[in-house]
């Protein structure tokens, strides 16, 4: 029994080593944070439009349909990375995307959409970044999945891509669709 005490350091050390190895093996990035807003209603917002042709975004616009809300900015490099993919979703009608233009100059944002294309149903301008803070955004691009009741169901940090969409977002959309249909 007394000798078991001498095994203590070994057991403790090995446990620690497992905790060191886990995040590396799983490829976890410690910088990615889970959202505190999951299962919560979307915060109040009323954003002015970016383009003359499309209205801005308020709560009403975001309730009633399963949809993506994408925070983007023309000055953000990774946003450019995901833009092609957003264009494909926009064209394919899988799920509508609402854009929130985060702390951007109107001119620059307009030119950006003109150059790269506009995948969004509606675009609202978050000039001072307060709406983003209400959503718990900590760095653009971030993409939120909203259900029909206007609750946040999923949040992705960083640029979207086909593989991430298929792995992470599509399954949630399918479950949500089933729930409302069945």
């Amino acid at each position: 029994m007394r000798k078991l005490i001498y095994l203590g350091p070994l057991v403790f050390f090995m446990t620690t080593a497992v905790y060191f190895a886990l995040p590396i093996i799983k490829g976890k990035d410690p910088r990615i944070l889970p959202s505190a807003m999951i299962e919560k209603n979307i915060p109040d917002l009323d954003l002015p439009p970016l383009l003359e042709t499309k209205p801005g975004i308020d709560n009403q616009a975001l309730i009633g349909e399963i949809q993506l809300v994408n925070f983007f900015s023309s000055w953000c490099g990774p946003c450019r990375t995901e833009h092609d993919f957003l264009m494909r979703i926009g064209k394919s009608n899988i799920v509508p995307i609402y854009g929130i233009n985060y702390k951007d100059k109107q001119k620059a944002a307009k030119k950006w959409l003109l150059d790269l294309g506009d995948p969004y149903e509606r675009i609202g301008r978050d000039v001072d970044g307060r709406t983003a803070i209400d959503w718990g955004v900590y760095g653009v691009p971030e993409t939120y999945l909203i259900d029909k009741q206007g609750r946040i169901q999923y949040r992705h940090v960083g640029p979207l891509s086909e593989s991430i969409f298929k792995e992470k977002i599509s399954p949630v959309i399918k479950v949500l669709r089933k729930q409302t249909n069945g």
């Binding site: 910088r31 490099g77 990375t81 960083g158 640029p159 891509s161 593989s163």
Partner: peptide, 12 residues
């Protein structure tokens, strides 16, 4: 995926 890594790298 490669692009994502590139993003994380630049972020880093």
């Amino acid at each position: 995926m490669a692009k994502y890594q590139l993003f994380m790298l630049t972020l880093a």
